[in-house]
Computed example of a mutant assay.
Amino acid sequence: MGKAKIAPGFSLNEARIGTVEGGESGLLVWKFDQLVAVLTRIDEEAYSTKGQWFLETGFGLLSGQHKHFDTIEEAVSWVGGYTFPDPAPAD
């Protein structure tokens, strides 16, 4: 993942995602402590998409969405546009 700059309020946790035998490299995408998406790193040279990211599953407004992204920054930015607004500050 390196030193990816991500949108404010977002955090990422590396995870092995059980989509293939042995699992795939993936990221859990959190927005203000809420899990909003699961991304996997594409490792398929046959489709010339190696190194890109895939929205494996999303929650809330992202439910049912599937999309490819060139970079993790692009993925998190797109996810940010399809999630609920930032939570209101606590009084």
Rank of each mutant, 00 (worst) to 15 (best):
M1D: 10
G2I: 02
G2T: 12
K3I: 06
A4D: 02
A4H: 03
K5T: 13
K5D: 08
K5W: 02
K5V: 14
K5R: 15
I6Y: 02
I6M: 00
G9A: 12
F10P: 06
F10T: 08
F10N: 10
F10I: 05
S11V: 00
L12P: 12
L12D: 06
L12A: 09
L12V: 09
L12T: 03
L12I: 13
N13K: 15
E14I: 07
E14T: 12
E14F: 14
A15W: 13
A15I: 15
R16T: 13
I17N: 03
T19C: 09
T19M: 03
V20K: 06
V20D: 14
G22E: 14
E24T: 14
E24D: 13
S25V: 00
L27A: 00
V29Q: 07
V29L: 02
K31Q: 05
F32K: 07
Q34W: 03
L35N: 13
L35A: 11
V36P: 00
A37K: 01
A37W: 07
A37L: 07
V38M: 03
L39Y: 03
L39W: 02
L39E: 03
T40L: 08
D43P: 10
D43V: 14
D43W: 03
E44N: 15
E44W: 09
E45M: 04
A46R: 10
S48R: 03
S48H: 08
S48V: 06
T49R: 13
T49E: 07
K50D: 10
K50Q: 08
K50M: 14
K50P: 08
G51C: 09
W53Q: 07
W53M: 08
L55F: 01
E56N: 15
E56W: 11
E56M: 10
E56H: 13
E56P: 01
T57K: 11
T57V: 14
T57W: 03
G58Y: 02
G58W: 00
G58K: 08
G58P: 01
G60T: 13
L61Q: 11
L61C: 09
L62R: 05
L62H: 05
S63T: 15
G64N: 11
G64R: 09
G64P: 08
G64T: 14
Q65N: 10
Q65V: 15
H66Q: 07
K67E: 15
K67S: 02
F69M: 00
D70Y: 00
T71P: 01
T71Q: 05
I72A: 07
E73Y: 05
E74D: 06
A75E: 11
A75I: 15
A75G: 04
A75D: 00
A75V: 03
V76W: 04
S77M: 08
S77T: 10
S77H: 01
S77A: 13
W78L: 06
V79E: 05
G80C: 02
G80M: 01
G80R: 02
G80N: 12
G81D: 01
F84H: 06
F84Y: 12
P85S: 05
P85W: 07
D86R: 01
D86A: 11
P87H: 04
P87N: 06
A88P: 05
A88H: 11
A88E: 12
P89S: 04
P89G: 11
A90E: 15
